[in-house]
Design a protein around this nucleic acid. Sequence first.
RNA 1: GCGCUCGUAGCUCAAUUGGAUAGAGCAUCUGACUACGGAUCAGAAGGUUGGGGAUUCGAAUUCCUCCGAGCGCACCA
Length: 536
Amino acid sequence: MTIVDTLARAISEAFGELGVKIAPEEIKLERPARLEHGDLSSNVALVLSKRIGAAPRELAAQLVAALEGRTIVHVEGIEIAGPGFVNFRLANSWLHDVLKQVVTEGEEGYATPNLGGGERVQVEFVSANPTGPLHVGNGWLGSYGDALSRLLRRCGWQVSTEYYVNDTGNQIRMLGESVLARRSGSEVPEQGYQGEYVTDLAVRYQGPEDVVTAGKFAAEEILGVIRTTLDRLGIVYDEWYSQASIEESGRVDEAIAMMRDRRLVYELDDATWLRSTELGDVRDRVLVKANGDATYLAGDIAYHRDKFLVRGFDRVIDVFGADHHGQVASLEAGVEALGIDRTRLEVKLGQLVSLVSGRMSKRSGNYVRLDELIDQIGPDATRLMSLMSSIDQASTLDLDAVTSKSMDNPVFYVQYAYARISSIGRVCEERGVVRAPLADAPLQLLVHPRELDLLRTLYSLPDVVREAARERAPFKVTNFVRALAGEFHGFYHDHRVLGDEVSTAETQARLWLVEATRIGLSIGLALLGVSAPESM
RNA sequence: GCGCUCGUAGCUCAAUUGGAUAGAGCAUCUGACUACGGAUCAGAAGGUUGGGGAUUCGAAUUCCUCCGAGCGCACCA
């Protein structure tokens, strides 16, 4: 039972004595922004005042009076503040218990809220067309999708990651045309791919003068490059799913037949249409063109049928760039047309990344390649940069600032904290200092603000993980890791763990504090897919 | 024109989902090492949350309305 549960129950019981019914689950206890407002705060009096029509402060006063009659573990003082907040001041022993919990549960056990309950969820992300190397924006969403998958796994979901390979259709033909044009030394078509990589591919292509063959060759080669890039970032997929395989297996026809059975398909002007207007889309969509080819949408619907009905995922999360948001309504309509509850499909739209430097202003086809960024700042920095803010926020990358000044990148700050911790461990070994069992550690010696701040932040980790998973917002873990690293640097600066000026008892208590911090950093960094180096 | 996503310090971003005096980093200025790793720490300065209305004990957050930005509105993928 956590301190929050204990308090919520006590408040609920106190209100019960006053003749007011409120369940412990309804009572919110939050950590106030300011320390002077206590360690935990509840707005229950404000919320209840609306319900029962009493003045908030009056209600709060009655609550406090009722609470003061009883003793609650760790609670040192209760105050009413502002419009009617009830603030609880807790004894340090509260935080010492947090330390115990962190080190007892460890990296595997601490902050593992079970939200998913074993539900099978698929996360699809990047899925960039194999017509060119990945750019920085792909890296952003790649880091996002990967970190989100790690988060969901930690929170009790059974996660499968997937890359949807668009290895068919016009784009591949155009790619083949571009390769053949380069090989014969003629002009690449207007709509073709102009990048230098096409020339390299043309040199290596030995096959016949056929756009499809050349296109497939090129796509496979490029996909290999894409895999290598993602690999450098530590992004690993469980599945690479071919669009061509969907079309070739007849699954598109099956999907259309299913929708037809549900009377949501009709013929008009030699084409086959989905009645998507009835399912929330702004217009009906073509599934099969007049020339007999299936549209991309038809393939996409068949693909999602495969996800839900063939492979049996309970939930699917698609991570798209915001430039694809035009597809969302029709895809959702398609999923519903298959009789699948549309709330099982979550589409996360990542706002696009733009560049502040002049690099984008160069001629078309000249974007910043993800490999280039990784070359310059390394995989860890690339990932952390990507995971610094919400994907709902359009972000701007200042490539010059990021690459020239390492201070502009917080990854070093965080990793340095971890390296310092590891360094303490090495010095312990040199000096023969051994950390005694937790039960013997005099944790009550941890009383300085720096020490308590560390523990407060560690206390928040389970909530951070829960929120980040629920909101699909891994950047919250980044914020946590930065805060924890910052507090560690402050602690490290002000207090020594080892040395003549600290007692052996203090050393023991602080060694455990350091270990708890290490666990917190380790959990956070692992969720982000950023390495935790023992030295730098 | 219609729709979606947004607009917070000079810059990059937060803000416990309606809570208390809107916070961090970078950049700027000032200060701190005979030390377990200074890739660190402390302080200063920086704001009419794009503008204006509405809702209530309370709004950056919800609702209108302007202004501005990005993206999307195919029998392309």
